[in-house]
């Protein structure tokens, strides 16, 4: 699978049977729909559609332009979501930002997801 931002092949990281696609060039992360389902179960991801001046990217699976959505408590983190439901794209730092937000305010995402994200993406300031 190619990175939606830099178009190079991404590598796969598997932890606790959840697989994520990472880009070595830009440190972005792709969450497949299937992986999200494994994480979330039936709970929907809280997200609101937003507009932003970030460049529009194409879904690595279905090639449709990705929507910009705000997620997490307060909707502070802006990520890209496939309109077809193929998955979510986090630019560099965005996962860490989400984890930090989730540390500040409880709720928003199910505990299992928060725990998993915090495990795999420990917040590293400035990195």
């Amino acid at each position: 699978m190619k990175c939606p931002a830099c178009r190079v092949s991404m590598y796969v990281v598997e932890y606790r049977r959840i697989e994520l696609d990472l880009c070595a060039a830009c440190d972005g992360v792709w969450f497949d729909r299937g992986e999200l389902d494994l994480l979330l179960g039936d709970e929907p991801v809280l997200a609101q559609v937003a507009t932003a001046d970030e460049p529009t990217r194409a879904c690595p699976l279905c090639d449709r332009p990705l929507d910009k959505v705000n997620i997490g408590p307060g909707g502070r983190v802006l990520v890209d979501r496939c309109p077809q439901g193929c998955g979510l794209w986090f630019d560099r730092h965005e996962v860490a930002e989400l984890v930090a937000d989730l540390d500040d305010a409880a709720g928003g995402l199910p505990p299992a997801v928060r725990e998993f994200l915090a495990e795999v993406f420990p917040a590293k300031g400035g990195k």
Partner: peptide
């Protein structure tokens, strides 16, 4: 964790 590296991976390290 387990890392899976595609055959056409461009970077020398992951």
């Amino acid at each position: 964790t387990t890392l899976r590296i595609p055959p056409d991976f461009a970077t020398p390290s992951a």
